[in-house]
């Protein structure tokens, strides 16, 4: 079944290294390939380099060695390539990062109008349909401070989707939410996965990983310890470190 759903490789990460200025080595010789429509769940203890990996994928973080190619575009020092990749890669943050001085409508419209050069009417149409999709069309004129955490995160997802990205990155998108709000955000993410969005998800929600993940990467100390299908990693991990981590979180 997976063979028919998945396409060619859209993300190719080849042997990247990343050391922070303070000397911490966040990524060490890290490689992976992600297919179109694949949902990759990245797990691991904190400090494993999961977020750094994600942030490298859209150029928020520079890496020292190696190459990243997204949909055929190399992520290098070329500014236009970087901008192109950022347009194609949407990101959802742990702390939402909505623009507090703008309404929901303005938050979602902004990049459509500035980057995709749509006029206000066109952008608003897209925004309304996306708010419909994430389930809060009635909040279109609210400011972020008037929304709950779950609602803010759903707006943030809509804002990223408005750019019509080819890849969506989720950096612990539910970690800052109250327990009763996690479900509504995960539901939106599940819908996206079912629609065939390519997703790289850093999360501690193992239920979500089991339900929609095509592949799990278990990272520790900046490297891949083990990767494989959800069944493989959760039910039959090969490495001792993986077994130890899985037993702690399940």
């Amino acid at each position: 079944m997976q063979g028919t759903k998945l396409g060619d490789y859209i993300i190719e990460v080849d042997r990247i290294h990343k050391t922070f200025p303070d000397g911490t080595q966040a990524l060490y010789d890290f490689s992976t390939k992600i297919r179109r429509s694949e949902v990759v769940v990245v797990i691991g203890p904190s400090g494993a380099g999961k977020s750094t990996f994600l942030r490298c994928l859209n150029g928020l973080e520079d890496f020292d060695k190696g190459t990243i190619t997204i949909d055929g575009i190399p992520l290098d020092d070329n500014k236009e390539n970087r901008l192109e990749i950022r347009k194609e890669v949407g990101m959802v943050f742990q702390l939402f990062n909505l623009f507090p001085h703008m309404t929901v409508l303005e938050n979602v419209n902004l990049a459509q109008m500035l980057v995709r050069k749509k006029d206000h009417k066109e952008a608003t149409k897209v925004t309304m349909s996306l708010l419909e999709k994430v389930g809060i069309p009635e909040k279109v004129q609210s400011y972020p401070s008037q929304l709950s955490g779950g609602q803010q995160q759903r707006v943030a997802i809509a804002r990223a989707l408005a750019m019509v990205p080819k890849v969506m990155l989720f950096d612990e998108a539910t970690s800052a939410l109250d327990p009763e709000m996690i479900g509504e955000v995960l539901d939106v993410m599940k819908t996206l996965a079912q629609e065939g969005m390519t997703m790289v998800v850093v999360t501690h929600e193992m239920g979500f990983a089991r339900e929609v993940g095509d592949r799990v990467i278990f990272m520790d100390e900046g490297r891949t310890v083990e990767e494989g299908s959800v069944e493989q990693i959760f039910s039959n991990p090969q490495r001792a470190r993986t077994r130890q981590f899985i037993s702690q979180i399940l």
Binding site: L83, F93, L95, N97, V115, A160
Partner: peptide, 17 residues
């Protein structure tokens, strides 16, 4: 906050915008 920059950059906004 840095998150504002990151959100803007991740949406493809230029530094000027």
């Amino acid at each position: 906050a840095r998150g504002q920059w990151e959100a803007a950059h991740s949406l493809g906004l230029s530094t000027f915008h």
